[in-house]
Design a binder for these strands. Structure first.
Lengths: 200, 200
DNA sequence: TTATTAAATGAACGCTGTTCAATTAAGAGT
DNA sequence: ACTCTTAATTGAACAGCGTTCATTTAATAA
């Protein structure tokens, strides 16, 4: 059926996402454009729009991959990590390191605002939820006297916190320089929070 | 000396900033453009560039005003606020309420990424620092056994945390809806953090 | 060899930030 | 009053953006 298809639709999507990721890594979100991606994969703009709804759609898929990698790192860190609070600290460290080492892709996940009519698909929301689930799981052993809801609440508060430090620090708004200082801040937050959370 | 000056340079800047604020409030950061601002004040694009270096420069001044208002609210909340931990809770509530009531202007302060060669002026950094100073001041009464550095560190961690909850919640990434839930999360974070911070 | 049809193109539209030669008009000098 | 000077203001121009879609191209089926 297919005509002049050097690549299938799926291959094209794959190529486009990969090329776009490269551009984001090198030039940041600002440097990304439909024409650049098209050129990079040896096609023209029009083709890109046969395979993606629009740029937001492409970005969504890049972000999905970033979240997958982030989740893999976080998950991996939980396999061998000592006691419960060590595990949560690990989780924080991994999060910060990831953001520091791949700032452009990380930033795009959390800073890109999709146009209002663009609905965030469920499968994407689940990738975010999965991250919080890891935190929740890490909190469980420390929360014998807490309800399920309290644990959920705590995981959101704690991870919101880690995320906030990460964002402010990378934007240079925390008056700290270097990853190590950010790691220290995260440790401060998690440690103190856990102390309060457990000593009820 | 001046020719055809219906408005002085300073008046022009004032008008432009005010008009731009209005656009951001109504249409968000995405809706802001040099031509729109120029039209709104009855001038053309060229004039805007006589009075601002570029769009980033204009945005910086809008953000400065937003930070001033935020600081005023936060500061005001500290005048009559009970004991030390109540005061810090107040600070958090005010921060969240501000972001919720003026999301577009608040978001622009923390989400707009200035072009790399644009140096963030010291007077602007000071407006950020001033906010953290308020938190630091709020922490002091609770930190008799802590050093100055520890208090600074704690204020950054805690406020990074509040900020993170705020960002994630407003972006819809925390699985919570409504300001009240965000306020609850903030309370959770601050309360537990303070418990850990004080019970050393 | 031709007809069919999906794949791919690229010009076009309306927008963006930014620049700067050209125009306009207010005040000074006569 | 008229001209000259000069600062204020304009708006066309440039290169880029996201997005659309009539047109062209080429691989297959007949």
């Amino acid at each position: 059926m297919a005509r002049r298809s050097d690549h299938s639709r799926e291959e094209l999507r794959e190529m486009a996402i990969t090329a776009a990721e490269q551009i984001v890594v090198e030039q940041g979100y600002e440097g990304l454009s439909a024409r650049k991606v098209a050129t990079a994969i040896g096609y023209t703009v029009g083709t890109l729009y046969l395979v993606f709804e629009n740029l937001d759609d492409l970005i969504l898929h890049i972000n999905a991959r970033t979240l997958d990698r982030l989740h893999a790192h976080m998950n991996e860190s939980q396999l061998h990590c000592g006691d419960a609070s060590d595990c949560l600290l690990q989780l924080g460290q991994v999060y910060i390191r990831f953001a520091d080492e791949d700032p452009h892709r990380w930033a795009m996940v959390f800073e890109h605002r999709f146009s209002e009519d663009q609905v965030v698909p469920v499968w994407f929301q689940e990738k975010i939820a999965r991250m919080f689930a890891l935190v929740e799981k890490g909190l469980e052993p420390l929360a014998e006297q807490h309800t399920r809801d309290e644990i959920t609440q705590a995981s959101r508060a704690l991870w919101g916190g880690v995320h906030g430090i990460c964002i402010l620090a990378l934007a240079g708004n925390l008056g700290v320089a270097g990853v190590d200082s950010v790691q220290d801040l995260t440790k401060t937050l998690i440690t103190n929070y856990l102390k309060g959370f457990t000593n009820n």
